[in-house]
């Protein structure tokens, strides 16, 4: 089943006014517009119940959007097309490998239901297994595989049909931390080398930042922000995004004459919007220095040695922030330190 090179790059997908209300009246998704470019890896990120999985299932064709919503693949309306006709590959959180089939039978299944001759589908499946570096497992039963191996088989099975898009629903959640990080790198390299349209659902911000060309942060059935990982990380649209992606510090204060006054001291900051009474910044946007070198002063209240760096908790009045320091810096609880903030990384919220 060799598709032409133009479709193997994957489809451009558009959702227009896609809302979802379940039979019991629960509103899972507010009307939503979303464009996914051909070949792009888009990550849907958010806490459970935010609508990210519902969005994925609408794209897959496992759920129909409420009346009025449309889904198009390369400009063709597929809203009424069930999943088996959409030609997408899907990887499930539970992997959903067929226990009654061997590894190679699982991978060849999509070709089998398409009526591909046995010899050819086995050859295609073998190629994909080779690409995923699990060829030696071909004859194994599913219950003889480790979690990471199952993950690879699930990916291989989804890719074997050369889908127009690959949809991944929390594919790494069931794995332990070390394996997760390893497979994350592998999936990233794979998606990039295939240049296939990929939509990846996760609640893990580290996964989202590492994998996504763009990230869609979702909350309560609506999009909170769309942007590149850097945009979402350094310019979060609001406090929710800032809080959900990475560690965020919040410095409360008030504005006076182009200065921002806080419990730790005042800094120069020309904020446009005086309604916003706090600044958010990432731990790595701040640098600890001697107290006399900076306008902001804090007391060290906790020091955690993490190996390559130290995580330091600082307080001033009611303000409590977390910053990072090099592993060798002599920091002790009770020290008074200064803090220098990178002005370009301060986000008024």
């Amino acid at each position: 089943m060799m598709t032409s090179s133009s479709t193997s790059r994957g489809a451009a997908i558009r959702l227009a006014r896609c809302a979802k209300t379940f039979a019991d009246g629960t509103r899972a998704l507010e009307p939503l517009d979303l464009s996914i470019e051909a070949g792009e890896t888009l990550v849907l990120l958010g806490p459970s119940g935010c609508g990210k999985t519902t969005t994925l299932r609408i794209i897959a064709g496992l759920e129909a959007p409420d009346a009025g919503g449309t889904v198009t693949f390369d400009g063709v309306d597929v809203t009424r097309l069930p999943i088996e006709k959409r030609h997408v590959g899907m990887v499930f959180q539970s992997y959903a490998l067929f226990p009654n089939m061997s590894v190679v039978e699982n991978v060849a299944y999509g070709l089998r239901v398409r009526g591909i001759a046995k010899a050819e589908r086995l050859r295609s499946a073998a190629e994909v297994l080779e690409m995923m570096r699990i060829a030696p497992l071909a004859a194994r039963r599913i219950d003889q595989l480790s979690g990471g191996q199952r993950q690879r088989v699930a990916l291989a099975r989804a890719l074997a049909v050369r889908p127009r898009a690959i949809l991944l629903d929390e594919p790494l959640t069931a794995l332990d931390a070390a394996l997760r990080e390893h497979l994350r790198t592998e999936i990233d390299a794979l998606l990039r080398s295939l240049a296939i349209t990929a939509i990846y659902v996760t609640h893990d911000q580290a996964e989202a930042l590492a994998l996504g060309d763009r990230i869609v942060v979702m909350r309560q059935g609506a999009i909170a922000q769309i942007g590149t990982p850097r945009e979402v990380y350094f310019q979060p649209a609001d406090a929710f995004v800032a809080g959900f992606v990475g560690t965020t510090n919040r410095l409360d204060g008030s504005r006076r004459d182009g200065r921002f006054e806080t419990a730790a001291g005042a800094i120069a900051h020309a904020g446009a919007d005086s309604a916003k009474t706090a600044l958010a910044f990432r731990p790595e946007s701040a640098r600890i220095c001697r107290p006399e070198e900076a306008p902001l002063r804090f007391t060290v209240t906790q020091v955690h040695f993490l190996g390559p760096r130290q995580r330091v908790v600082l307080t001033a009045g009611d303000t409590r922030i977390i910053v990072e320091a090099g592993p060798q810096e002599p920091l002790f609880v009770g020290d008074v330190v200064g803090l220098i903030l990178d002005p370009s990384c301060l986000v008024p919220i």
Partner: peptide, 12 residues
């Protein structure tokens, strides 16, 4: 998810 996986692979 097993049925959904089969359908995603094109099974009727």
């Amino acid at each position: 998810a097993l049925s959904e996986a089969a359908r995603s692979l094109g099974a009727g």
